[in-house]
Design a protein around this nucleic acid. Structure first.
Length: 221
DNA sequence: TACTGATCATTC
DNA sequence: GAATGATCAGTA
């Protein structure tokens, strides 16, 4: 059982350098051959290895520590290959929402990043676990994240959800998060009426996650 | 080739 | 359906 951040980070360090095949073998898991059908597999494997057990509840992976676990695919140059999903976007417009009381804020407070070294379409089993990194947003990052969040939430509150594209937001943006483009969830339209729309998620852009990952590399020198 | 919209697996 | 874990892949 993990008691504090130091224990968690130490455990994560023990995974560093392992391939997914090696970690899966330790945990008696079968690695999917096809990466198309393996989305989420690596993240769930790392969760098991580190003892995260908050399931699919909208809370941090380690509730007692307030730490969120994120694997992030990085290429050979150390650049993130994908954006990072954070949580669902509340689509029932509420006025006077406070950033500090939101799920997205809670998840962004403290993140244990586990880089996964891989190129597009490399065998899942061959992907390698990198140096873990505990991160909290610095002042500049925090202000920008809050500004992005405020802009997006304001649009939703104004009933402008359908005008939100993934291009809005410097660090944090909104994209579809669903089984497919036909998925529907309740939302509030511009007249304040309840309607149905595509579920959306908050994602971190790689321009931010690259900063985060590279800062840790600088510390090592 | 990076980005944005779409999609895949699993659990409850 | 709604949340988690994400990556895929067409196009700008």
């Amino acid at each position: 059982m993990i008691k504090n951040e130091q224990d968690l980070l130490a455990l994560a360090h023990q995974l560093c350098g392992l391939t997914i095949a090696q970690l899966a073998e330790r945990l008696n898991e079968i690695v999917p051959d096809n990466s198309l059908h393996a989305k989420g597999f690596v993240g769930q494997l790392i969760e098991r290895a580190l003892g995260a057990n908050s399931g699919n509840l909208p809370v941090a992976d380690f509730p007692d520590l307030g730490v969120e676990l994120k694997t992030i695919p990085i290429n050979t140059k150390g650049k993130p290959r994908e954006s990072t999903y954070i949580c669902m976007v509340p689509l029932k417009a509420q006025y006077h929402i406070v950033f500090e009381q939101t799920v997205v804020y809670q998840k962004l407070q403290r993140i244990l990043w586990i880089p996964i070294e891989s190129e597009p379409h490399t065998q899942v089993s061959a992907r390698r676990i990198g140096q873990p990194l505990l991160w909290s947003p610095n002042e500049i990052q925090f202000q920008q994240l809050r500004a992005d969040w405020q802009e997006l939430v304001d649009m939703i509150a104004m009933g402008e959800l359908e005008m939100i594209s993934a291009q809005i937001g410097e660090y944090l943006h909104i994209r579809p998060k669903a089984a497919d483009a036909r998925s529907l969830t309740k939302s509030i339209n511009f007249l304040g009426e309840t309607t149905q729309t595509l579920p959306r998620g908050f994602y971190l852009r790689s321009v931010l996650t690259e900063q985060i990952i590279n800062r840790s590399q600088q510390k090592k020198n």
